[in-house]
Each structure stands twice: as structure tokens, then as C-alpha cells.
Simulated assay, not measured.
Amino acid sequence: MAVCCDLEVDVNGQETFMVDKKIITSYSCRLSKLFGKSVGIEKNLKVIFHDFPGGAEGFELVLRFCYNGRIDITPSNISLLHSAAQFMEMNKSASEKHNLLEQTEKSLEEIKYWTWQELLIALKQCQDFLLIANSAGVLGRCLDSLAGRLALTSESSPCASTSSPDSSSVRFSSDSRSTESLKNSFTRSTWWFEDLLLLSPKLVEMVTKSMVSRNIDHAIISKFLLFYHKSKSSAATADEKCKIVETIIDMLYTLDQSSVSCKSLFGFLRVSLSFNLSKSSRSKLESMIGYQMDQATLDNLLVPSPHGTNYLYDVNLVLRFLKAFIQRGGFQVSLMPMQKVASLMDLYMAEVAPDPCLKPSKFLALAKALPDSARESQDKMYHAIDLFFEVLH
């Protein structure tokens, strides 16, 4: 069959293709509608695509299908082909027998038979053109399949459920074989951590939401998020680090608050001091810390004041922690956590009292932040107040 090149196609400004208009329009409703039912030879026809999925590579795959009537669809190209087929409207309306969209749809139905590595390859390709892959539905299917497999792994390999990545709620047996069994079980639940390091923060956010919807243990999810942050931040730029931190904070906020340790949260706080975090992410981090205020230490709270202020420590930050703590559980905090926080605040007030730049209103706010019932004795608080007045005089 003679092939002419009567149509010029500019793909995303990357490359220009000379193609046979009749052949390519016979498979694409988008182009057939563009050219209408015009007949005869029209010279100097040109089409410009600005957002073709996968750019020149994607268009070349489409051409291969159009000229051959078929193409091998694999996990490594299905995301690109499916998105391109939707973009070009290569459906039954264009070709009853050979339409790329239907072929990719049938291939996607086989996703449950893909290997783990094939699934990761498909996800990586979705990541390269995220918005289009998401709207085409390929990404959603890949994420659902991945989360489903992780859920099965979690169910078939029950591990010691931890209340936080740093502490275990399980009492380990003195039997070394039992301890080793628990370690191996936990490892079987975390084997996938390194594999998902290839994902961008946006994909990690979507994967996390899929895992939550599958009821995967929140302690495992939080452990993965902390692992991702530690692994990806070392080689990232400042902007990339900020994006990673924001993503991890936002995702941790969606989990059970007991699934991440207070120590880890304060670690994020220290890291975030050098970044311009979004107001939303910073507020979520402060809220999570406030929720676990009874587990904090004095050193945790001694955060330097923001740049441009005179006082030594960031008292406003601690006041926000206290507000979040009081509000947890709808203003019904049990007595023991309340007493722990009261003791901590007595120590904190004594530490900040000697600061000559600390305003009386701020010190008073610290003293009045907790109800009187939180303290069995007011002696330590009065001692801190005495220290503060000594500085004033």
C-alpha cells in the first residue's frame, strides 16, 4: 500500500512528524472531526499538539499502531498507550475492529496477573505524565492493584502491631525463636518500602490514601512515610525537601494519631524550621504534636523563637501545642495526661522565665493555659512566677 505524507504533526514542540492523513484519521475521531469530510489533496496541512501524552514517544507508538493495525501492549507502555488513545479518541466510533482504546482496556483487565515489578513499571510511567494518566483512569487502577496486594501481604503476614514506629505495644517473649519470628513477620510487612522510593511525593500521597482505604495497618503506613522521608531527603534540593516534608505531614495527619511517635513529630518540626512550609501543613504538624503533648520533653519544647523576634524561645508555638492538646477528645482530656502536661509546663515556665524579652502577657498565657485541676500542687508554677518577677525587677 502506497503511503503518502500529506499531514504535518507538531508534537509538544519536541518533534514534527510527516504522516498519511487518511491512515491516521481512520483510527482517530479527534482528527477525523478536525478535518471533517473533506476530500481531495490539501497541501500544507499541519496539526499542533501542545499536551500530547508522552510527547513524541507517545505519538510514535500511536503511529506504529495506525500503520500496522496492531501493537504489543505491555505494562511498560500501557499507561502511555491508553492515555494517548483517549487523547486521540481512538475508539469504536473511529474503527470497529482495530481501536487502540478497547485493546488497552482489555489489557488493563489483566492487571491482576501482572508481576509486582510490572506494576511498578506502569506506575513509574504514569508518574511521568501524572495528570493525563490520572484522568485516563490508568493510574487509579494501578494504585488500587498495588494497595490490594499490600493489603493481602498484611493479612497473610500478621505482624506485631505497633502503637508507634519507635515503640511496640507487644510484649516480646523471652523465647528467642518467638522474637525472631516476630522480626521476620514485621519484615514481611515492610519489604515493599524500598520499591516505592521511585515514586514522587504526589504519587506517595495517592498510594497512602489507597492503603488507608484498604485498612492497612496505620503503624505500617506511618513507618513507610518516615522511611520515605529519610531516604529521599538526603539527595533532594531545598524545594524538593520542603515538598517531601509537606506530603509526609499531610499524610501522617490522615492516620491514627497514635501510629506515629511524638519523637518523630518533633523531628519533623526541627526539619521544618528551615523551610517555608505551607500554613496548612504547619498547622497539621502542630496539631499532631499537641495531641501527644503528654509525651513531650522539655528539650522538645525549647524551640528557638522565629527570626526577627527578641525573645529566646518560641512561646507562641507552645501555646498552640497546648490549645491542640486541650481540644483533643472534645475538651475531655483524662487526668493523667493533663497532669503530665502540667508538670512539663511548670518546667518550661521556669526555663523561659529568666528571658527579659518575654512579655508578661505571654507568661500569663502559659500559666493560665491549663485548668487548676491539672495540678495537685501549685508550688512549681509559683516558683516559675517568682523567677519571672525577679527578671522584671
Rank of each mutant, 00 (worst) to 15 (best):
V39W: 04
S278I: 00
R320F: 09
N310W: 09
A136K: 05
T74Q: 13
C5W: 08
S154Y: 15
L285W: 07
D294I: 00
K241M: 04
Q14N: 09
L344W: 01
E351A: 14
K359A: 08
K21T: 05
M206Y: 07
H393F: 12
A374P: 02
A147H: 05
F388L: 00
K37Q: 14
Q125T: 07
M18P: 01
T104E: 03
L298P: 01
F389S: 10
K92S: 12
S176M: 01
Y291P: 00
M345S: 07
S38R: 14
T309A: 12
I216M: 13
D20M: 02
S157Y: 08
R214C: 09
Y113E: 11
D294Q: 07
P165Y: 03
M288T: 03
P75F: 10
N310E: 06
T309R: 15
Y313H: 09
S163K: 03
K46M: 15
P354W: 06
K323N: 09
C159W: 07
C126H: 07
L63M: 10
C5F: 14
A151E: 03
A160G: 14
S164P: 04
G36H: 06
S161L: 11
R282I: 02
D250M: 04
A367L: 09
I132R: 05
D372T: 11
E118H: 11
M251V: 02
L301F: 06
S157A: 12
R30E: 02
D346M: 11
S161G: 13
V207T: 01
L269K: 06
L319P: 05
P337M: 07
G137K: 15
I248Y: 00
S361N: 06
S135Q: 12
N300F: 05
A324G: 06
L152N: 12
I385A: 14
I73F: 11
S176C: 04
A296E: 00
V245T: 12
S38M: 13
F49V: 02
G54L: 01
E105R: 14
R30G: 02
A374Y: 03
G58A: 08
L139K: 06
A384T: 10
M381R: 12
D379F: 08
H229E: 09
S167N: 08
D6S: 10
F59C: 14
Y253Q: 04
I289S: 00
L302H: 13
L61N: 09
A324S: 15
M18L: 11
F331T: 14
K33T: 04
D294P: 00
A365S: 10
M338D: 00
S157T: 10
R375E: 03
K263C: 00
G55S: 06
K124S: 09
D294A: 02
L301A: 07
G290S: 04
D175M: 08
